[in-house]
Amino acid sequence: MESTAGDPERALRICAACPGICQYSCPVYRGSNLRSAAPHVLARIALAALQGSPGLGEALNLCVHCGECVRACPIHNDLPGALMAARARLAGEAGVVRVEARPLGGSGEPLVVASPIEPPGRAIDALSGWRLYWLPTREAVRAYWWGSRVEAQAPEGSTIIVEDLDFPREALEGLGRILYSPEALDALGLQWRPPGDSLIHVPCKAPEELRSRLRGLGEALEACSGAGGPLGLGMPEYAAQAASRLAREAGGRLVVTPCAWAALALRASGARACTFLETLWGCRG
C-alpha cells in the first residue's frame, strides 16, 4: 500500500476503519481512559470535525504527537501528521506567532531558557555569570499545534537551553547555540549529579543523541508522559490524567526530566518531578 504521508484525509479514513490495533500504545488513552483519545476513535472524530460537526474540534488536542501509534501500527499510518493537518484546516488561515526572550537579570553573555515554566529569581544566582532570559513557549506552542508558524527573538549570540521539546526547533535556528538541558549542564561547566532517589526521564520526543545521554545519567524511566503536544495546554487536566500512569511507574521517586510539559503534568498528577534546570535552583518535586 502507498504511504499516507501527504494525504491526511486518507490517513484519517484508514485509521477510522481500523479496530484500534495501536490503541493501548497511546499514552493519552491508556493514561486517561478517555475513549475519544483512542487513536482510531480520534481519527473518526477528526473526520466528523472536518465535516463541520460542532463541538468536536477540541478533541484534536488529545494527541501529544509522541508517535507511539505510528510505531505500533502494522502499516505505520501517520495519524499524528494527519491530525496536525486537520487542526490547521480547522483553525483556518495560518498565522504567525512571535515570541521574544524576556530579560530576568544577571550579567554576562545572554543565556535563554526556552520553557513554559518561568525561571524564578533564584535561577539568576544558580546561573551566575550569565545574563538570564526566559523565552516563554506556552502560547507559541499552542498556536504551533493549531497550524501557526512560530518566530522567536533572542539577543544576538545567545546560548539557548531548550526545556520544551514541543517548541519548534526551526524557530530557534540562527539565534545562537541551542542545547537541551542535560547537554547545557555540561557545556556551562556545572557539576550536576542526579538527586539521591531520582529517576531520569527519557521522553518519547527526545532525539536519539539526547536519549543516549539521558540513559547515561542515572536510572532511566523511558516512557512518554502523555503530556506534551497540544494536550498540555489545551486540556491540562487530561494531561495530568495521562501522566498518572508514568507517575505510578515512578513509585514516589523524584523524576528528573528534560521536558517541562512532562514535569508540569507529573506534578499535577501528584508525582514528584523537576526539569533538569529546576534541580539547579532547588526543586525536589
Binding site: 478517555l34 475513549r35 475519544s36 483512542a38 476513535v41 480520534l42 473518526r44 472524530i45 466528523a48 460537526s53 460542532p54 463541538g55 468536536l56 474540534g57 477540541e58 478533541a59
Partner: peptide, 9 residues
C-alpha cells in the same frame, strides 16, 4: 463525561 467531543467515540 458530558461534552460532545468526549461522547462521540
Amino acid at each position: 463525561l458530558v461534552e460532545t467531543w468526549s461522547l462521540a467515540g
